[in-house]
Design a binder for these strands. Sequence first.
DNA 1: GTCCTACTTCAAGTCGACTTGAGGTCAAGT
DNA 2: ACTTGACCTCAAGTCGACTTGAAGTAGGAC
Lengths: 130, 130
Amino acid sequence: MDEIAIGEVVRRSGVPASTLRYYEERGLIASTGRRGLTRVFPASVLGQLALIAVCRNVGFSLDEIARMLARDVSNLDRAMLSGKADELDAMITRMTVMRDRLRHAAACPAPSHAECPAFQRMLREAGPGA
Amino acid sequence: MDEIAIGEVVRRSGVPASTLRYYEERGLIASTGRRGLTRVFPASVLGQLALIAVCRNVGFSLDEIARMLARDVSNLDRAMLSGKADELDAMITRMTVMRDRLRHAAACPAPSHAECPAFQRMLREAGPGA
DNA sequence: GTCCTACTTCAAGTCGACTTGAGGTCAAGT
DNA sequence: ACTTGACCTCAAGTCGACTTGAAGTAGGAC
């Protein structure tokens, strides 16, 4: 019993059928065939969907994910993984700075943000062209 | 000399003219009038564009920004600010966890990710429906 | 007076990741 | 026999934030 129909995949993964069909079309998952008209997937599709969700969460595009899965499902490209970890790291740094500045701006005693030095710094650092 | 034509705003802010017109239409910035056909903006628009860039950076939508600017340009809604800081905080936490897991997966000595406990945990934690 | 350049408007196109809708098929239950 | 419900395909729509393109114009240099 390692084959499950699309309806069951929906029930067990929470991913809508339209998305499953879309993912199949995009080459992220593969059905093993049909039972009547109905798509049948290998049970392993559930793990793959989990993996896809993780990847989407950390900012991979569907194309990137498809490329990764195309190679070897259980042996993802390690360089790609650590590259994405680096990207995340950079983003975390930027966001942390922003969070602190926002926090300050929210608590700043200056009568208006225009007079707050930290707020000014935020504008300069994150302005357009940055 | 506190009025600048759109071309100069483009030069000094790096924001394309099409975007400036779009922002004006959406109510994020306002021109003071025309010189011939050409839009003229108050010099303060440069600071506003910087602010808009900051806000976009931390995830405000144009609608949110427009609403904030509509109240009082130099006295942004502090509750909104700290609310966004909280959102950022949560996102930073999630991303940090992910980064560590990715880092591990990239360095993991297990022959395939399928056999790596940390990788499994990542799948469970960030799977669909999470 | 005419040519260039920087501007204008308005409608439509783009991108990613899906969703929605119309119209059709198949297996099972009554 | 007929209805129900789960599934199918394919085309088109959605959302946010812009960009692109066509067709037109005002102002300044020569």
